[in-house]
């Protein structure tokens, strides 16, 4: 966390929706500390939709399980928000990763959309990074989701053609990281990342895409075998 990051977040208006008061307060405190402007903190999906209409925020951080049934209210609300206000970025937090949820959420355009395991908030800097990415129109897909999708992918044979490093790059691309982000994560140069990426696209017969989120879409579609 540095001064630059704080100024970056200034003016980003956020709504937090989580029925666990403890965690909601923690996330609100984190966001306020990091310069975000938390305009509302709510405990259920109906209140979330109302708050979105009232405040027109830039970002919603939404827990999947909320009252009354504690199943997927948050997810439904997130999809609804995306439908009504495509310009609002949404980050969905889940107790556990469920690929079916992910598929539902990430079905359309993944721009400005995130789906992370709830415990990712503990890694404060990465969590904030994911938030910023989503607000900027990128995407953030949990590594766990990606590995589940990979595990179930029918493209196993083609994926075997990738080197371990290329596979890592593919996973990070699917998570929504930019070239710079991938470089930082793998501690390699930007040039090296670009080389890996073009290798991946070549080996998998994919059209190179501009922009991180379109790339995510392409990779996810490929992995699902569509």
């Amino acid at each position: 966390m540095n001064e630059a990051a704080v100024t970056n977040n200034t003016g980003v208006r956020v709504i937090v929706a989580d029925d666990s008061v403890l965690l909601r307060d923690g996330v609100v405190r984190l966001l306020n500390d990091s310069g975000f402007d938390v305009v509302a903190a709510v405990g259920d999906a109906a209140a979330l939709l109302d708050a979105v209409t009232d405040h027109q925020p830039d970002l919603c951080v939404v827990d999947v399980r909320m009252p009354p049934t504690h199943t997927d209210e948050g997810l439904r609300a997130a999809i609804e928000i995306r439908r009504r206000h495509p310009q609002i970025a949404v980050l969905v937090l889940s107790q556990y990763v469920e690929e079916r949820y992910a598929a539902e959420l990430l079905d359309g355009d993944v721009a400005g959309l995130g789906y992370l395991l709830k415990d990712r908030v503990i890694d404060v800097s990465h969590f904030l990074e994911a938030l910023r990415r989503v607000v900027a129109g990128g995407s953030a897909v949990d590594a766990e989701v990606i590995s589940q999708i990979l595990g179930r992918s029918r493209r196993g044979n083609e994926l075997d053609r990738l080197t371990p490093r290329e596979r890592q790059v593919l996973e990070l691309m699917a998570e929504g990281l930019s070239n710079a982000g991938i470089a930082e994560q793998l501690v390699v140069s930007g040039g090296a990342v670009e080389k890996h990426i073009s290798n991946v696209f070549m080996k998998l017969d994919l059209e190179p895409e501009d922009g991180a989120h379109r790339r995510v879409l392409a990779v996810l579609r490929y992995l699902r075998g569509a």
């Binding site: 666990s20 403890l22 965690l23 307060d25 923690g26 996330v27 984190l30 709830k118 415990d119 908030v121 503990i122 890694d123 404060v124």
Partner: peptide, 11 residues
Amino acid sequence: QQLVAIGLDLG
């Protein structure tokens, strides 16, 4: 949730 909140505090 409590563990996550604790982790968040520590983070």
